[in-house]
């Protein structure tokens, strides 16, 4: 497992702007995610968090500005190319492969499998079988880690919302990820499952050296996992610091409650 370098900047966002027609969703936003951290991204609804995530993940290009991944300019790069560079994301609404069994939801992930080439799939079944056994073992390890093994052959569409979120996290473990973008991983999960999910994220950060960049509305989870926490409001960064700093920051409260300076004073 590739250990991420625990020093330096993993993701650097410089002056990103995104307009949808007349709406400016992200407005000259700059921030950095340090390698080895679990960095939180919070902010009121409409602050532009998910749009920024989608730009970093290559879903659509920004109107202006640049994204650097480990020093390389990756602005506008397609998601599958970013994946090759170790950037993996999960979705706010779980994106499972509904009619694939849980185990195949994981087996599909590892990049560069020989059997993904049609000619190899047709002509070299022996070579594929050995590799696929290895991929399968890896998937079984991940299912053990996430305590999903009993559901191995269940179609992923039949899982509960929380189990689907676990499976999302599991997919990031099927590759040598370096940075994982988690988009509201806690949404729709019961408290018990959430505790174990937070635990899993910490373990992945500690044991495998994943850098996490986390959008979250659950402040308890952010407080437990994330340092530093970046606050976005109206499309750009408002402030950044430890959760304790953020809690004490009057501007953050204003951003969430929508008060102007005069009203707050």
């Amino acid at each position: 497992m590739a250990q991420a370098d625990s020093s330096g900047t993993m993701v650097s966002v410089r002056g990103i702007t995104k307009r949808f027609g007349g709406l400016t969703a992200v407005d000259d936003c700059s921030l950095e995610v340090e390698a080895g951290t679990i960095t939180g991204l919070i902010g009121p609804n409409g602050a532009g968090k998910s749009t920024l995530f989608n730009i970093i993940a290559g879903v659509f290009p920004p109107t202006g500005g640049q994204v650097f991944l480990d020093g390389e300019n990756v602005t506008g790069m397609k998601p599958h190319r970013l994946f090759e560079r170790g950037l993996v994301r999960t979705f706010q609404i779980a994106h499972e492969y509904a009619r694939l069994p849980v185990i195949e939801n994981l087996m599909v992930v590892p990049p560069g499998q020989d059997g993904e080439r049609l000619a190899t799939a047709l002509l070299r079944p022996g070579r594929i079988r050995a590799q696929d056994t290895e991929v399968r073992r890896r998937a079984e390890d991940v299912l053990d880690f996430l305590r999903l093994s009993p559901l191995k052959y269940e179609l992923a569409g039949n899982l509960s919302g929380g189990q689907k979120k676990l499976l999302e996290l599991g997919r990031t473990m099927m590759t040598d990820a370096r940075i994982v973008l988690l988009d509201e991983v806690a949404a729709g999960i019961n408290r018990a499952l959430l505790a174990s999910l937070a635990n899993d994220i910490e373990r992945l950060n500690r044991e495998r050296g994943y850098t996490f960049f986390v959008i979250e509305h659950d402040m308890d989870l952010i407080g437990r996992l994330c340092d530093p926490v970046i606050v976005m409001a109206q499309g750009s960064v408002l402030t950044q610091g430890s959760m304790a700093d953020i809690r004490a920051d009057r501007r953050v409260i204003e951003a969430y409650l929508g008060m102007s300076d005069e009203e707050a004073a």
Partner: peptide, 27 residues
């Protein structure tokens, strides 16, 4: 044979969820 191979698995994943397949590095 193609269906049971990783090639077929990627196709089925694309059928189920194109965005997730793209995010999992598939072209």
């Amino acid at each position: 044979r193609a269906w049971a191979a990783p090639w077929g698995r990627v196709l089925r994943a694309i059928r189920e969820n194109e965005d997730a397949a793209e995010a999992a590095g598939k072209n």
